[in-house]
Write a protein that binds this DNA or RNA. Sequence first.
DNA 1: GGCGCTAGCCTTTTT
DNA 2: GGCTAGCGCC
Length: 1140
Amino acid sequence: MRFIADFHVHSKFSRATSKNLDLENLYIAARMKGIAVVGTGDFTCPQWMEEIREKLEPAEPGLFKLKESLEKACDARVPASCRGKTRFVLSVEISNIYKKNGAVRKNHNLILAPGTREAEALNARLDKIGNLRSDGRPILGLDARDLLEIMLETTDRGFFIPAHVWTPWFSLFGSKSGFDSIEECFGDLTPHIFALETGLSSDPPMNWRVSALDGLTLVSNSDAHSPMKLGREANLFDADLDYDDIVSAMKTGDPGRFLGTLEFYPEEGKYHLDGHRACGVRLSPDETRKLGDVCPRCGKPLTLGVLRRVDDLADRPLGQTPRKRHSYQSIVPLTDILSEIFKVGPGSKKVQRAYMSVLRNLGPELPILHSLPLDALAESGILPLREAVSRMREGNIRVLGGYDGEFGTVEIFKPGEREALFGQRTLFEMGPPPKSPAASKKPGALKKPAAPPPKKPRTPKPADAPEPVFNARQKAIVRAAPGPMRVSAGPGTGKTRALAGRIAYLIKEKGVAPQSILAVTFTQKAAAEMKARIARMIPHLKTPPCAATFHSFCLDVLQSAAKDDGDGRRFSIIDERERLSLVADAAAMAAEKGFDVSSRADELADGVARAKQALLFPESDLRNAARGMDPAELFAVYRAYQDLLSSQLLWDYEDLIFETCRLFESRPDVRDACEKRFAHILVDECQDLNFAQYRLIRLLAPPGKSVFLIGDPDQSIYGFRGSSPGYLKRFLKDYPEATRAGLDRNYRSTPTILDAAFKVIEKRRFDPSAPKVWSDLAGGAPVGIIRTRTEKAEAEAIVAAIERMTGGSGFFSLDSGRADGAVPAGNRGFSDFAVLFRTAAQGLEIKKAFDRSGMPCRLLSKKDAFFKKDLAPLICLFKWVHDCAPVLDMEAVFSRSKSGVGAKTARAFKMWRYQKGLGLSEAIRQAARLPLPGMGKAAQYKLTAFFQRIEGLRREMSGLSISDRLHRLAAFLKWEPSLESDPKTREGFERLIETARSANGSPRDFLDSLALETDSDVFDKRAEAISLMTMHASKGLEFPVVFIAGCEMGLAPFERAGEDEGPDERRDRLDEERRLFYVAMTRAGEELYLSHAERRMIRGRLVSAKRSGFVSEIDEGLRRDVDVFGDKNKAPRQTQYRLF
DNA sequence: GGCGCTAGCCTTTTT
DNA sequence: GGCTAGCGCC
Ligand SMILES: Nc1ncnc2c1ncn2[C@@H]1O[C@H](COP(=O)(O)OP(=O)(O)OP(=O)(O)O)[C@@H](O)[C@H]1O
């Protein structure tokens, strides 16, 4: 069967598309155009998918049709002459923006799916990579190759077509951010590319000039953003109405089944010629080359069009064709033809009426333009139509080429010619067609001088290369003789690099066994970075050195020591929530015992942590740890807390260090073994050492040991958990033989950024005599200061600025006409940006703004706080029925499951069992027999009855998978309603199920992976995204462009109302705030922006705040005010956006 | 003693 | 915008 197909369209859920793009209107438009197979577009968009499921039903294999009743209603709105079959095929266009080979790449890709199951499977994968909701054409920070791979992993029947491959901004071969070959883009997966979409600005003859495309099927689609644009380009098939046959026709290019394409005149496309829109300069490629690619009016670079780009990559002259090719027909939309005939706009009432009348008389549009015998056109009732279509089919028309985002214009009749031929009033009369006048020539005649492809000014990032480069001072550190050594150096001076280099040096040149090296830091991220750098310097190491955080190293020591001792107990590590809850319980027990407990649980918890960080036992002198509290109170709570922990085999984070120190002190044999094992110890970020961690190092490093500390005292930001750069000085006292070294050359930031940051830290430096860090990187844009009215406007400003700097990520293209403004337009990738802020809560508003924009971002935050709270009863119940301590949220379980057991009974039970030191199961057993103190008979009856229900539940668990168990427990907690109604709860539950699936082991493993779940696990590592994080979390990282949000008094430096602190305490705290700001500023490489809002919601209260004092301390010459939005205080959103 | 509702309170940073 | 204490009703 012969038919026309258009696969690339969009729904109303895509940006800047017509609001009436629903399935009914797509159907109606397809009928009027004569299209039998139309893409749904946007199948990754959940809202659109919902409509698809609601309104479509399966028809022929892999195809869908409008449901009968809808179809009937739609047919009534279509001229009878146009009625016929129209089928839908699931399709989507994805915008890929990513870095490859050191350059930012942006391309669009079309995917066809054989069915909803396959589409949903793909959606599930992509959902983890980017935001599928906010844009029907999702923007993913994902390599196009990886997208193809994900599609292939999901279904072997999907079909992948690089879209409009020549457009400058967003395409495979685009001059701005494309590739020079398919292989460069798709690498090993190139054989899975069978077809290319030529796009509006190119036609088959242009593509035939590139021999590398021989053998690929050139397809054409409309990329319609409104129903009536449907089919302005399309494909002709003679195939079965069947997804697989259609796809196979395109895959093979079988000329019997894929007949060819209907093409827009390429000159009409927005980017056909070269030019500069702001100056109204339109040029052919040859002219542009002569001008050296700059605008003759203003000297700015010209936007090079498709013709030029093809010319650059072509290896054949125009007219020479490959052996295998398909025929094509260039068409002009009927409304444009009518518009010219009537000399009124294509959207005018007059043209619309004429359009409908032509359709009523002759049938659908595309056959009229393409194949209807000319004589039949005489039936149209519009006299010049026959002549116009005839000229169009022969290419006998004049087209003024489009350039730099400006559409081209078509002219079928020369000025005055139309009137001369037909007279003014005869348009609607029948008449014999007049003779065709001579053809006019198309502009931009193609002659190709043998010019080499232009070199792109792209500098590969050093990060992609191995890192063997060290300056002289770094080299001295790397190669220093083993022994105690302390390096103190500023930001970006290559501390981490030197540490990794030293490890590589020890292994490679000194023959040190990798396993005898211990490298420790403080965060998982830093440890991972260390590992990665070592691996890059010495790849293929069988046993890599131990690179870990203090905490994971200690856990390892404790566990292996227990194993060696035959101690089979397994301790669990509790998280912050559990710690607070247990401290509260401990406080209650202490109060029960008659202690006067008046402090809040979180203060007590801090006190306990401080004590442990100082290696103090409950019985020790707690006066320092107690701060404002009564030491006796802290003693009682600390002791009760330790009892609770040890009776349930629990450790908190502090215990890991504390217990390891204790182990080493009480068991010299264990200490000796560990000390021998690790002949070399290296500590990164050593300004963050606290007392316990420093003690640990001393225990492992007797005098003369090869122990290497590297850090920057001005970056010490964890004083609130006991860290102090003082241990750097202390180290020199304890190891008088230690070598000292420093570094002062920064390789990260421009001098301007360094100067600005130095201004902030200058007065409060740890060592005022230390040399100032310098850099000679080029480019010194001043620090941008952004001021907005509200925090919401601040978030929008940051989003808009990043949008501009990425060169527009999809919904507005960055034609040179709009590339002015306060923020440099650019061509950066998402991973080049970080947005930093003081409090995690600020990140939420910023995240929302990014989600609205559709740009991919990653909020790195404490994962539990936001989603574990809702899930607490479920997780608690899970632990309960699997006998995994600690079961801490019993009250929530009681109330959720309508047990009739209230807080008071729960409390009495808990206190009783804690006092008796009973495990949960033993306590439950006894509660069934003995009367419990402080509890009435009725209450105890309800309690024990509930315990029996739990027993029953426990029995139900056997044989079920983890996720089935979770579902069963959720039902027990009567959770379905809130899963339905509350999206947050649902999301949390889904994440839980996801974790359960991937853990796929014992319940214990599931709980462990839940405890370890970091945000990065939730995201696909292949995807690039803008990083959103707290200033603290940014330590050790670097980004070319950094935004620091919330640069206001109260946030930077942070102030808490009603804080009672002494002057010394306050000074120390403010100094740390200052260092934190310094850390944040020095993350930036090339550009730094500090934003502040005049008003912001804090605690539900609108608070006004002045700009941060830190900003004022930066010399005015080093900063400048930036107005992201220009005059309007509004984002340039939803700019009228038309197709390429 | 449980349960639902409201008013008023408070919210840093992390292993 | 979320959490808890306290109130009144069952
Ligand atoms: N000798 C060098 N030549 C070129 N680049 C270097 C050199 N030394 C370090 N760099 C680069 O400088 C940047 C900063 O290095 P690194 O992260 O090791 O610094 P750091 O001192 O640990 O920084 P910070 O304390 O701010 O976290 C990195 O991108 C690194 O690759």
